[in-house]
Computed example of a mutant assay.
Amino acid sequence: MIETMHGLPDGVLGFRAVGAVDAADYESVLDPAIDAAVEAGNKVNLVFVLGEEFERYSLGALWKDAELEGKPAHVWGRIALVTDHSVIAEIIHGISFLFPCELRIFGVDAVDDAVAWAAEGPRED
């Protein structure tokens, strides 16, 4: 599932993956939050945590993640991926040139740094 992180600075959306993540998690949690930020004219500065509680992505979730790339490039500010899963970090690092924004990978022990970095990103179009 995807849980919303609370208490973040204005202009930062934060989410935590817990257990298995599937397409319905994107549809019910992540997509509406991103769409609301875009409709409000805000850049999407995102913190996404894949910590110890994270188990796996379903194929449907991977597809929904790929669909996020279809959003116009101008809506993206910064993406902070927080994970100690080395394979995931290496894959994301390898394809980071495909992301239409700044992307940085942080270790789980640096969640606060990830949030601060995302908060420094652009706010409005």
Rank of each mutant, 00 (worst) to 15 (best):
M1T: 09
I2Y: 05
T4A: 13
T4E: 15
H6F: 08
L8G: 07
P9S: 07
P9L: 02
D10L: 07
G11L: 11
G11H: 06
G11K: 01
V12H: 07
L13M: 08
G14Q: 00
F15T: 07
R16W: 04
A17R: 02
V18N: 10
V18P: 00
V18R: 02
V21M: 02
A23D: 10
A24M: 10
D25N: 00
Y26C: 07
E27Y: 04
S28G: 03
V29R: 11
V29K: 04
V29T: 14
D31L: 15
P32W: 10
A33T: 14
I34D: 00
D35N: 10
D35A: 13
A36T: 14
A36F: 05
V38M: 09
N45C: 10
N45F: 10
N45A: 08
N45E: 03
L46V: 00
L46E: 01
V47C: 13
V47N: 09
F48H: 11
L50A: 08
E52D: 11
F54Q: 05
F54P: 03
F54N: 15
F54T: 08
E55P: 06
Y57A: 08
Y57T: 05
Y57P: 00
Y57F: 15
S58I: 05
S58W: 06
L62W: 07
L62D: 10
K64E: 14
E67Q: 15
E67Y: 07
E67P: 03
L68A: 09
E69M: 15
E69F: 15
G70T: 14
K71H: 13
K71D: 15
P72R: 14
V75R: 11
G77M: 00
R78T: 03
I79V: 11
A80L: 06
A80P: 00
L81Y: 10
L81W: 04
L81K: 01
L81D: 01
T83H: 02
T83G: 10
D84W: 04
H85Q: 13
H85L: 08
S86V: 14
V87M: 13
A89C: 06
E90Q: 12
E90S: 15
I92G: 03
H93G: 12
H93M: 08
I95H: 01
I95D: 03
F97I: 13
L98D: 05
F99A: 06
C101L: 12
C101G: 04
C101E: 04
C101I: 00
E102P: 07
L103E: 04
I105H: 01
I105R: 02
I105M: 03
G107P: 09
D109T: 13
A110L: 09
V111N: 08
D113H: 01
V115T: 12
A116R: 06
A119P: 12
A119N: 05
A119K: 02
E120S: 15
G121S: 04
G121P: 13
E124K: 13
D125H: 14
